[in-house]
Simulated scan of single mutants.
Amino acid sequence: MEILLAIMTGVLYAAGLYMILRRSLVKLIIGLIIISNGANLLIFLLGRITKGHPPIIPEETKIFSEIYADPVPQALILTAIVISFGLQSFAIILVKRAYKVVNTDDIDEMNATDEEV
């Protein structure tokens, strides 16, 4: 299972990088979304996937004797999801505003427009 998820992480990174290298700003945002999903999957894999109990220690025990799920990667992924949502929202509004002003989402045409003005 981990091998499949590791391959999927690599595919997400490759697809995201490919989309970022395109000339369109919309494809750039899609590439950022794909790379952030790949990063979330990587953090999840680094925390080791285990089928276990929640990490709650009963009062009568001092240490864990059973396999438990690690809560730190899950908390990091949840934080990363919230931050990436804010970044995506800002980027979408920024691209919309740039499209309104320049009437294109092609990065090369935007640079040419700056030189002509």
Results as ranks from 00 to 15, higher is better:
16 G>T: 01
33 I>P: 01
81 I>K: 00
102 V>Q: 04
114 D>M: 06
74 Q>N: 10
22 R>I: 02
19 M>K: 12
26 V>D: 08
75 A>V: 09
5 L>Y: 06
114 D>K: 02
65 S>K: 14
18 Y>Q: 06
18 Y>W: 13
71 P>S: 07
7 I>R: 06
87 L>R: 02
2 E>R: 06
60 E>I: 10
28 L>M: 15
116 E>Q: 10
36 S>D: 11
55 P>T: 03
77 I>A: 03
96 K>W: 10
109 E>Q: 15
8 M>G: 02
32 L>H: 07
13 Y>W: 08
40 N>Q: 15
48 R>F: 08
4 L>R: 04
22 R>E: 13
104 T>Y: 03
58 P>Y: 04
100 K>H: 13
70 D>H: 08
47 G>I: 01
61 T>V: 07
111 N>Q: 12
58 P>L: 08
77 I>F: 05
64 F>V: 05
8 M>R: 04
2 E>V: 07
25 L>W: 00
106 D>F: 04
41 L>E: 01
78 L>Y: 07
59 E>H: 10
59 E>A: 13
58 P>E: 10
30 I>L: 14
41 L>A: 11
14 A>M: 14
108 D>T: 08
43 I>G: 01
18 Y>D: 01
43 I>A: 11
18 Y>H: 07
77 I>L: 06
69 A>V: 15
65 S>P: 02
62 K>Y: 10
117 V>I: 13
44 F>Y: 15
6 A>E: 14
20 I>W: 01
96 K>D: 13
56 I>F: 13
61 T>C: 05
101 V>A: 07
34 I>V: 15
106 D>W: 05
36 S>N: 14
32 L>K: 04
96 K>I: 12
99 Y>D: 12
54 P>T: 05
54 P>M: 02
75 A>Q: 11
25 L>K: 00
46 L>G: 09
44 F>A: 04
10 G>Q: 08
62 K>T: 09
90 F>Q: 06
4 L>C: 04
7 I>K: 06
33 I>Q: 04
101 V>P: 00
52 G>H: 03
112 A>F: 08
102 V>C: 04
4 L>N: 10
100 K>I: 07
107 I>N: 00
17 L>V: 09
99 Y>I: 02
23 R>I: 05
30 I>E: 06
80 A>L: 15
3 I>Y: 12
86 G>H: 06
61 T>L: 14
49 I>N: 11
102 V>W: 03
22 R>S: 02
87 L>V: 11
31 G>F: 01
42 L>K: 05
20 I>H: 02
